[in-house]
């Protein structure tokens, strides 16, 4: 499968049982193969927006098009098998080996055994885990960083049209996080998929994304390339969010004060 375009038109999600919008209206177009980061404080709706794509959250108005096709008209089961999903909690199946976790979507798609086995090894190599050493491990035998690598391998195993990631590196220490950020760009480029990446870490968004969508209170505050956002923040909120937080410089400045 090749990377899909993704477009949101007037998408709204209401708080359950009310007429108040939790999200939207959202209008956003994402090109095939583009890497878009959704950034904003907790509760701004970035995770909700992400989950509308694979219909874990249903929308109350508007439409979402996958490659120009209204996603509401697609069978959700088949559609989800063509969309990768990786989350902070990993959701790796703890009763299955690493290999079986990675094999899940290809199995659901009915690939033959040999093709699945080859694909699992290729995916583990893609995320830099030695297949021989990791294939038969259980999720509980993995470090946090390794578990995320497996999560990414699983999400990409069936060459999805779109990859959805929700704070995948949020629970990792800074060094492992940097390492995985560096690798994710390479991985996504190799697989060639459209990526929607939720994070509250603006530095992560700046490093990874082709385009950053800043969200606040369920709406898009600004949507632009990383440098454009930093150089020309559209609102005071965006400026504050992206203001360089340089603790070292602050420390030196404070020390210089007599």
């Amino acid at each position: 499968m090749s990377a899909a375009s993704l477009s949101f038109a007037g998408v709204r999600v209401r708080y359950p049982g009310t007429s108040r919008d939790a999200l939207g209206p959202i209008d956003l177009r994402i090109a095939p193969g583009e890497f878009v980061a959704l950034v904003g404080p907790s509760g701004c709706g970035k995770t909700t927006l992400l989950r509308t794509v694979n219909r874990l959250t249903s929308i109350d108005a508007g439409r979402i098009d996958l490659d120009g096709v209204d996603s509401a008209s697609l069978d959700p089961i088949a559609m989800r098998r063509s969309i990768g999903y990786a989350i902070q909690a990993t959701g790796l199946f703890s009763h299955m080996s690493v290999a079986r976790n990675v094999a899940i979507v290809p199995e659901l798609l009915g690939w033959d055994r040999a093709r699945i086995a080859a694909r699992v090894d290729a995916m583990l190599e893609l995320v830099r885990l030695d297949p021989v050493r990791y294939r038969d491990r259980r999720p509980r035998e993995l470090s946090g960083g390794e578990a995320q690598r497996v999560g990414v391998a699983r999400a990409l195993a069936a060459a999805p049209r779109v990859l959805l990631m929700d704070e995948p590196f949020g629970a990792l220490d800074a060094i492992v996080r940097r390492e995985l950020q560096r690798e994710l760009r390479r991985i996504v480029a190799e697989v060639g998929t459209t990526t929607l990446f939720v994070t509250h870490d603006v530095n992560e968004a700046l490093r990874l994304a082709d385009r950053i969508v800043v969200m606040r209170a369920g709406a898009i505050e600004q949507c632009a390339a990383p440098l454009e956002i930093v150089d020309h923040p559209a609102t005071p909120f965006v400026r504050e969010l992206f203001e360089a937080e340089d603790a070292i410089a602050e420390l030196r400045a404070a020390a210089r004060i007599p």
Binding site: N54, L56, I77, A78, M79, R80, R81, S82, I83, Y85, I87, T90, G91, L92, F93, I104, V105, L108, R154, L164
Partner: peptide
């Protein structure tokens, strides 16, 4: 949730 999102 992962199981649902994988398309089971």
């Amino acid at each position: 949730e992962a199981a649902i999102a994988m398309g089971m």
